[in-house]
Design a binder for these strands. Structure first.
Lengths: 292, 292
DNA sequence: GGAATTGTCTGACTATAGTCAGATGAAATA
DNA sequence: TATTTCATCTGACTATAGTCAGACAATTCC
């Protein structure tokens, strides 16, 4: 290759710096300095802790305070002391502030829409490329949080998981899967568990646990978004769900999978899972278990 | 999908803004304000026109001048008046300035290398994703320039072109192609032509023309980088080479291709090319011609 | 209960980026 | 030749971001 990977990354950096700069400049079009606009973006209508704003933007406390005062004078936000800890303050968007935020949203949305349109027939590919890069850059901030199995973000993960099974497993058909999951109740505490891995605001993985009997539980719905593969996330999810099962008092775990899903099976074997007798119907054709 | 493409683009934007910000901050580690560092980056050892620097960074002339004076005081650059137009000035890097630039280069290189390393087994995919995005963002600045067929950038294009043929055309084997091209001479002016399309500093396409007889020429080596496909570049290259042939006095064009390269053949047909009698050996199996 | 720590705020300060008007000399144009 | 345009420079100015010290009140730690 004419350009080595590092030069190509730097070419990417230049292109993207220009783009980001242009976005910043267009934000200035609303007649407010960038620093203040950035603070405003972090103030939620329900209220945001002032310390959170300071941390996220890595701002000095004095500067943050002044930005907030200034936004307050404009009537865009209100602040009040946190009743739980009266040293802390909470900033909240006013109606006027929400309108202003909507205007900023519109600017960002327009620019994004224009770029997607520019990608034409390759828009899907471009979005996948952006997911990959964003997930890589966010890698150190990946968070795994419990979720309700009927929440929209959970449904999105499950849909993606089903789509992948249908795509890869010959025996899997769309009729086998329905959403919302009729058995969702068994994934909810206190009986079961459902976790989602987040990279910023994109769900990039999930895993669930449901009880089979008093001492045995089943691991299901292990899925990792294409952009997050190859970074050990599946392993983290599995180890989390095993810890949860242990804490809930289970002594044994089972799962069913399909032999075409070789990466998953390799992962299971490498973390102590062994083949067991069949205990479910197709599309599964491989059954594994692990003593906790 | 839980997140629509536009939200995902904006997530990408956030991730990348943080990264770019961090790069800027690390440049500040050399104890020089960012603006001045940016100016320094544009001063070449051979000399750069001051107006070029101003334009590229969209700086006020007063500010540019002050930055240059300051870099001059530090001994990093020298300026002299342009002899061709004595209103203009040229800035040139001193030895000390070159050392300083090397230090900046090293910072950028390190960060890039670290990010590539973080991508682990998916580094190739990440670089391809970055190419795709950078080419999209640079789309309006795509430039097609003549090149020598033996220049490194030309060899890179040809190698990529051959690799693709070997990959897609069953009859094509590595033994059929060698580089540098033994027939390179026929692609050079005044007899032939060789053009490369550049997106920033990445060659993303090429096309060449060689004479067959006094009034007929052959179009060869039409190639477009994966990141630049679907944006009409092949069409631009073809239309350019046809114009060149016309200007050189040719009346008729020919080309040979392979039936598996369907997008290319569709492009040819849509721009007035028609099937003709075979005139070459494999791996070609489709021959086309166009009267100018 | 007293000392240390924490979160926020204010005022005074500096650094950096950027704007604007005008001066100067050179080149282009009529 | 006279006028206009151009490229650069300087000085005076403003805007924005950011730093620092100290005050104050609430909380945590011992």
């Amino acid at each position: 290759m004419y350009l080595d990977p590092i030069s190509r990354l730097r070419r990417f950096n230049r292109a993207v710096t220009r783009e980001v700069g242009a976005l910043d400049t267009s934000f200035l079009g609303r007649g407010r300095p960038l620093g203040m606009a950035r603070v405003l973006q972090l103030v939620r209508p329900e209220g945001t802790d002032v310390a959170v704003i300071r941390d996220r933007l890595a701002l000095d406390s004095g500067l943050t305070s002044r930005f907030l005062r200034s936004l307050e004078r404009e009537g865009l936000i209100e602040t009040e002391t946190d009743l739980a800890d009266r040293r802390r303050r909470i900033a909240r968007l006013t109606a006027k502030g929400q309108a202003e935020m909507a205007a900023y949203e519109a600017i960002g949305y327009d620019r994004a829409a224009r770029l997607i349109a520019k990608a034409g027939t390759r828009a899907d590919e471009v979005v996948a490329a952006m997911d990959l890069i964003a997930t890589l850059l966010n890698r150190d901030h990946l968070e795994i949080r419990p979720a309700d199995p009927d929440a929209p973000e959970a449904l999105a993960c499950l849909q993606a998981y089903f789509d992948e099974l249908i795509d890869r497993v010959p025996a899997a058909t769309p009729q086998m899967f329905s959403l919302p999951d009729p058995g969702a109740d068994r994934y909810r505490p206190p009986h079961g568990r459902f976790f989602i891995a987040w990279s910023d605001d994109l769900p990039v993985g999930c895993v669930s646990l449901r009880p089979l009997d008093a001492t045995t539980a089943e691991v299901k719905r292990l899925w990792v978004h294409a952009s997050a593969r190859g970074q050990g996330l599946a392993r983290r999810l599995m180890s989390l769900i095993e810890d949860e099962a242990r804490a809930m008092g289970h002594r044994y775990l089972k799962l069913d999978t399909n032999s075409v899903l070789t990466e998953a099976i390799t992962l299971y074997r490498n973390s102590g899972w062994v083949d067991i007798e069949p205990y479910t119907d197709p599309p599964g054709d491989t059954w594994m278990g692990k003593a906790l």
